[in-house]
Design a protein around this nucleic acid. Sequence first.
DNA 1: ACCTGAACACCGTTCAAGT
DNA 2: ACCTGAACACCGTTCAAGT
Lengths: 216, 216
Amino acid sequence: MPRPRTPLLSRDRIRAAALALIDKDGLAELSMRKLAQELGVQAASLYSHYKTKEALLDEIGVQILDKVDVTGFAGSDWRAGLTGWARSYRAALAAHPNFVPYLASGPGRHPAALEIADKIHGGLIRAGWPPRYATMIGASTKYLVLGAALTSFARGFDADTQVYLDRYPNLGQAHLLQQMADEIDTDSFELALTAFLDGLDRLRPTLGHLGQPGHE
Amino acid sequence: MPRPRTPLLSRDRIRAAALALIDKDGLAELSMRKLAQELGVQAASLYSHYKTKEALLDEIGVQILDKVDVTGFAGSDWRAGLTGWARSYRAALAAHPNFVPYLASGPGRHPAALEIADKIHGGLIRAGWPPRYATMIGASTKYLVLGAALTSFARGFDADTQVYLDRYPNLGQAHLLQQMADEIDTDSFELALTAFLDGLDRLRPTLGHLGQPGHE
DNA sequence: ACCTGAACACCGTTCAAGT
DNA sequence: ACCTGAACACCGTTCAAGT
């Protein structure tokens, strides 16, 4: 068969097709062979563009996390910075729930992740938090986001939701269940984030370190 | 070969060997064939005891979560109940970090998980929280525990820790790194839990529902 | 440089057959 | 009831070969 003038594949096409398959059928269903078939090509061809399946998944991860927003840390309002980061982070994960387990499993050490962690750390320090607290607050917020993204998105109903439904059986109309689960998820996340930040606010004065940094 | 008087395998032996392999080499490294070899048996033999690999993993999950403690909800101190649950939950996961991704990926809907969720929900309601808040608080706490268990245990250092180390390079003595990561993890979790509970405390009076339930 | 076809070393699972 | 050996339908990945 003659080689086409333009390559059949590209990294972007491969990523897009892979993510579409993951979104549709789940992470476990993605195989290099199925992906190749979807792209009208042999499985081995994919290895001309990505060295391994893992390299492909890693780059999909980077692409998804590209939408995480840390611009809120530009000012001196650390709450705004954290809130903006956490919400955009969660939204990025929620856009591809089936991919979340992959992101949650490996340590995030891509340059982009490091850059984000650095922005957050810097923003918190500029707001007067001691370095160690900056680290812990960043980590804690990530716990919330990852936990929230993992626990229930598009994942059937977990025990919490089930208990809620059992106790209030009048809510059991089938067509409301998915909406209900999404709502409980979002509300739980917002409650957790607000309560966490409120708790930090209360704790802050007791630290006895440098006060507010003047402006704002 | 004559059939031995006593079966070579048992569900308990299989689970123990499987979990040992997972603890040692990671979840991805566990295969039914390797597990069988470890047990001195053919892979097909395992299927006389567990219907599928997934059924085996599920039961390992139940076994691990068996150590989660919800007795703290017996009294009327909801903070003590939540704290005890969250800490024992996290400790149970931390005991087998390589298994956490499996627990985090599927919805927890075993009867045991439901029973726990019910105890928590009941305890919070008895403490005066409106039902919807009870659900959200339970979910939020689970976010924290799962996020904390996933993010860094025995998982190399993620971006947060890396930033911390980069900024304080004098901490870079190799033999202190693991201990440091564990410490940051634990402290972050405790900070998150405390701040979250403090935030809830502050929020509670504004709900305008039934006050404290008298005693304590 | 990019793609193919065939191969290699693995998987989970099934099933007839043995005891 | 429990275990084996062989098979089936899959995997990820490699590699010589073609263009």
